[in-house]
Design a protein around this nucleic acid. Structure first.
Lengths: 332, 332
DNA sequence: CTGTTAGCGCCTTCAC
DNA sequence: GTGAAGGCGCTAACAG
């Protein structure tokens, strides 16, 4: 592998000049620039990124921590982050934290040790204090889907409460008055917020919140099934179910069908996240769209702005989810 | 950020000694080692990975190129690759090539420029010659799901032909004799192989291949719908459809239902990939399981072996898919 | 506009 | 077993 030194010799200029044309910093005569370019081409020279990093104290790589690499939600997010960042010539180092505090911390340590210029964190389990402490360090961070009041400008969040609200409201507007709810794990902020929104909508419509009709799942399909079985076993009538994500909604729909209930004729169902498979389901699942890829894009731009000094980038910190009505909801 | 120099001063030893305890290379007295460890802890010292890389000519990062970051297939693959590699302390740099030759090359260039120690490539569009040329370079490569005869030991492939064969055979064994086939893009090797397997099974059962009953899609759900519409418009009777992936199968099932056909009573359907949402569908889609995560794991181990000299790792180069029977297939 | 000169932080022979 | 010294390939002042 050719080095910058050989290029400079072949071009008959100095190291610094080659460096200049590479980074087009400083002024270089078109003529010498051409000579350098020719030499570079001839040698098939490619700068050594590690040396560049060491010398410039900048690695051009940003660390990303998400709960899982698979699953419909994070794939979309990653996709947009990667695109935006690589278009800017930045490397993207990805790790998965599996919603476990120790693992998440471990990942963060790992990314810091990889000399990332910035971190994009989608964590669930790490305590806020840890993030606050981290943010005082030299590496800029962006926090996704996890609102830390002290770090509000670094957080990009989806308004989960609003999502729960509009999901429920949609059902109420379709004439449903007896609603069940299948929640995610109550210790996850997302779950909690969505449920709050649900309750707010009920209250706004003058309806009582019946805690019995709230079942807790784990965001996994199987838990949606269990929750639905449980709800149906209660013998409390309800005509619609709000689910805190699409996987659980899929499970719930299937259980309803097994119990001889038709969706949406006998029971309406709405999910959350508007993940890609919702439209493969039958009936097509109504859901709450999360603008996942927009959020990823914004996160990437934040990094470009905070870590690489790109200005003129508008940053929107909070996203409102939107209702996506399909076939699983029917008026009563 | 503390440097190795400060650690050495605080511990009262030389740079070299600190380096030795860090990499536990060479012999160090337990006593001095402890002093060094203490100093490291006190300063919260973390070695600068870029400097390490530059000096050791090894970046400890491996580049990964896959067609897409989202989608159920690649997420699972990534997930297992990342886990395996990070457990070994390696960074994972991920890029998406979008099945486009220029972009794929671009990604490879990018990864090479990132001084990766090895590359794991899941490419569709780049010509074999390019890969062969690349393999002659200094960076070891592993090729996923794309068999290059000249590079057979570097390829980890799924036996797609066999998958197409067993999918079709399953239907034949259920008594179906009039089969339609919805293929992926014919220029993708995967598609081609799966279709070959389909044809082989038919011939083995003494059935004619009716080219009219083979429709070409793009691996996307919408194309599955179109293909199914087309097949149904033909007025050629068939009692089962083999689809080259699950997304298209989902589309096909829905179209069948819209045409008043019940799955599996009137028509049996089988997909391919056994992607996670298959079990959310109704009826649950039968499919061909691809052992995606095993393949990812093996790819990672290949890298550990070829680029990092870890021995005693058994490498299996080719994987046989397996049949996953669910509710969308019924005997005739 | 271009060249010279220091490092960036670490690894790695080589002596001792 | 431990220390000294010379790079790894590049960037970034500072001169000229």
């Amino acid at each position: 592998m050719a080095t910058i030194y050989e290029v400079s010799k072949l071009a008959g200029v100095s190291l610094a000049t080659v460096s200049r044309v590479m980074n087009d910093s400083g002024k270089v005569t078109p003529k010498t620039r051409d000579k350098v370019l020719a030499a570079i081409a001839e040698l098939g020279y490619r700068p050594n990124s590690m040396a560049q990093s060491l010398a410039s104290r900048r690695s051009n790589s940003v660390g990303i921590l998400i709960p899982e690499l698979h699953g419909p939600f994070f794939g979309v997010m990653l996709s947009s982050v990667e695109k935006e960042l690589r278009d800017a010539g930045k490397r993207v180092i990805i790790t998965a934290g599996h919603s476990d505090e120790a693992k998440e911390k471990d990942c963060i340590e790992f990314l810091l040790g990889s000399s990332c210029d910035a971190l994009i964190l989608h964590v669930y389990s790490v305590p806020h204090e840890y993030l606050i402490e981290l943010s005082k360090g030299p590496v800029p961070i962006i926090i996704l889907n996890n609102y830390v009041p002290e770090l509000s400008d670094k957080c990009i969040v989806l308004d989960n409460e609003h999502g729960g609200y509009i999901a429920t409201k949609a059902l109420l507007e379709h004439g449903h008055e007896e609603l069940a709810y299948i929640s995610g794990p109550s210790w996850k902020t997302d779950s909690f917020k969505r449920l709050s929104g649900h309750k707010r909508a009920l209250k706004e419509y003058g309806l009582e919140v019946n805690e019995n009709l709230i079942a807790e799942g784990t965001f996994e399909e199987a838990s949606g099934r269990l929750a639905m079985e449980h709800l149906l076993s209660l013998d409390i009538p309800f005509t619609a179910v709000v689910c805190a994500n699409d996987e659980m909604a899929a499970g719930a729909m299937d259980v309803a069908r097994k119990h001889g209930l038709r969706v949406p004729d006998d029971i309406s169902v709405i999910g959350y996240d508007n993940v890609s498979f919702t439209r493969y389901l039958h009936p097509k699942l109504s859901s709450i769209g999360c603008r996942i890829s927009e959020m990823g894009q914004v996160a990437a731009r934040c990094v470009l702005k905070n870590a690489y000094g790109q200005t003129d980038l508008e940053i929107q910190n909070t996203f409102k989810p939107r209702l996506v009505l399909r076939d699983s909801v029917k008026s009563r």
